[in-house]
Design a protein around this nucleic acid. Structure first.
Lengths: 340, 340
DNA sequence: GTGATGCGTGGAACCGGTTCCACGCATCGA
DNA sequence: TCGATGCGTGGAACCGGTTCCACGCATCAC
């Protein structure tokens, strides 16, 4: 390289070395529409010789684009790391973001807390848009983001419904119904559920579907305990459930991690799965195959949701929201194993 | 707010509304050195009324600062999520970065792969500096970053040693020595080790210390198997070790996760811990307390290292590297529990 | 009363790109 | 031969801030 140490070459230098104007150099660097082959070659050569990389800030300032998007996860980091849901999510998002040639900025925030700080960051236009995963009831995030006019896609429906953000979600109600139906069909008559946190849609919807199906079948819907999507919480919830409803013969847990906890608790109390109590989980992210017995569960379409979310966001950034913002629903797929 | 929807107010508008020049408005917005109380008040008021937030790109362009730093983790995402090391690291880094009023950009890359893409990003000056955690032998990262002139702090020593990056590390050799000494002192005479990956300093150093201490004590140093820092890998390594050296009465595992695997394998073979085989781990990030028996281990000073790394980096960004870049070593602390 | 000092201020240059627009030139159909 | 067309090009404005510097004015010591 020609340039001296430490100095970052500018487009001006490239242009001069290539013997063209800054304008032409800029065009050549960006794909080269309306640039003659000779000019293109000269610029390419100069870029190589100088080791030129466009300055991000300057480019952002002119184009009003940063080329990066934020992933907001309003969740404590303990949960983020404990729950395979997020690992899987991050994995897919990372890959998908690369495919669109974007940079991912991970924005971890405690739910509800530090919203000021986050919004200040977003107002500074550090990112072109955001994906929000794991929304909680109290959060005013959806409205704040919409007010900001920032392209936004939620994975999982936000509580404060607004028609100014796009949403990608899975059919939790349908899964809840299917789970209940499956337990009913195998002969269970006293069916309980370990629901997710009441302040999250994922918890709410699966519970709602379970309720609907049982009600229509004329069965009781009182055996409900809310867990926190962790294994320990699942075990505890299962204990509470069994104390109150000793005759339970079927349980739907809103996540595999909680189901795994339930299995432990059931084993500790000498109840066999599925002979004494049939168990259905939700997620199918590895955990379900490793429990004993392996869990009958629903495959959470995280991959599809995350991919679609990034696609929608990229499209929105490029072409506008496409009136009105979209809402896309994926159906979780039942995976039968031994637990029910 | 006065402004119309969707339009972002600029400093120019603030200045006009406050009846001062752009220059004065800028000074007032940034802490207000050399600004009269009246001007300050007028600007503050205008900022509030317009809802002004400085445009990040423009500010970056002028100041040559972005206010964000990158955390590079050259590791597959499975490991990142499986190993509590990273969870803890990310937790501390996040908090520490906030304290310095910086924004964290998480840069996950496969070790060795995609270096082109990463370096292109970094050359674009999206971040003011980087912290690198978990460096592998093959990576040319240290040299590339140094060549770039980007403020860089490694957590854990890089292989390609260069004096142009700062390093924060823990004393792995010392820990290895202490572990060996402890096993010798409790009477072990056939001591093996499940080392970390040979391509990582964390693996190499702890092994080296173990070797030194045993050699000086006149004991054999042949019982070495390399694991991959995972639980499954630890169990497998332990199996190999026991097959080759059935008389083993002490093992030093370079991570608690691998030690946990070793406990499982030992149990499966009917060997009691610590009666038949004494076991020392490394990390003490929760895993060690939950094994049966609880592990004697070393507290990996991740919190201290991460905090110090961010502090060094922030200082470097503000005041230059402070000839020459620093190297800081923390001593892991022995935590005695039941396994040895 | 005078010159030195210092503070608050605004004009203007600057950071490093992108893009509008006008212009010159070659090509083409009539 | 002439005017219309279109392509490649460069000058210059622009994105939205920060900061250098010169200037006016009040204060102060002598």
């Amino acid at each position: 390289m020609v340039r001296s140490e430490g100095e970052t070459p500018t487009l001006d230098q490239v242009a001069r070395l290539a013997g063209v104007s800054k304008a032409t150099a800029s065009r050549a660097v960006n794909g080269g529409a309306r640039v003659s082959p000779q000019a293109q070659a000269a610029v390419d050569d100069a870029v190589r010789r100088l080791g030129f990389i466009p300055n991000a800030a300057a480019r952002s300032l002119a184009t009003r684009r940063t080329g990066s998007i934020g992933l907001i996860v309003p969740e404590s980091d303990e949960r983020i790391f404990a729950d395979p849901f997020f690992a899987r999510m991050l994995h897919v998002v990372t890959r998908s973001v690369k495919a669109h040639d974007l940079q991912l900025v991970l924005l971890l925030t405690q739910p509800g807390k530090e919203e000021q700080r986050l919004m200040r960051y977003l107002r500074g236009r550090f990112v072109d848009g955001v994906v929000v995963a794991s929304h909680h009831r109290g959060d005013r995030l959806a409205k704040s983001l919409a007010d900001l006019g920032l392209p936004t896609v939620f994975i999982g429906s936000p509580w404060t419904s607004t028609d100014r953000v796009s949403i990608v979600e899975s059919d939790g109600v349908g899964a809840g119904r299917q789970a209940a139906r499956l337990l009913i069909d195998r002969g269970c008559r006293a069916i309980g559920t370990i629901a997710g946190p009441a302040d999250m849609h994922a918890g709410h919807d699966r519970l709602e579907g379970w309720r609907q199906e049982l009600s229509e079948a004329g069965l009781g819907v009182d055996a409900v305990v809310h867990g926190d999507f962790t294994e320990v919480g699942g075990a505890r919830a299962c204990g509470v459930l069994l104390d109150e409803f000793p005759g339970l013969d079927g349980i739907f847990a809103a996540s595999d991690l909680m189901a795994a906890g339930a299995i432990r608790e059931l084993a500790a109390r000498g109840r066999r799965v599925p002979e004494d109590v049939a168990l259905v989980g939700y997620d199918d992210l590895g955990t379900a195959e490793r429990t004993d017995p392996p869990l009958t569960t629903f495959r959470n379409p995280i991959g599809a949701m995350a991919t679609e979310a990034i696609r929608l966001l990229a499209q929105w950034i490029d072409e506008g929201p496409g009136e009105p913002p979209r809402r896309i629903v994926f159906a979780p797929e039942l995976v039968r194993r031994a637990s029910a």
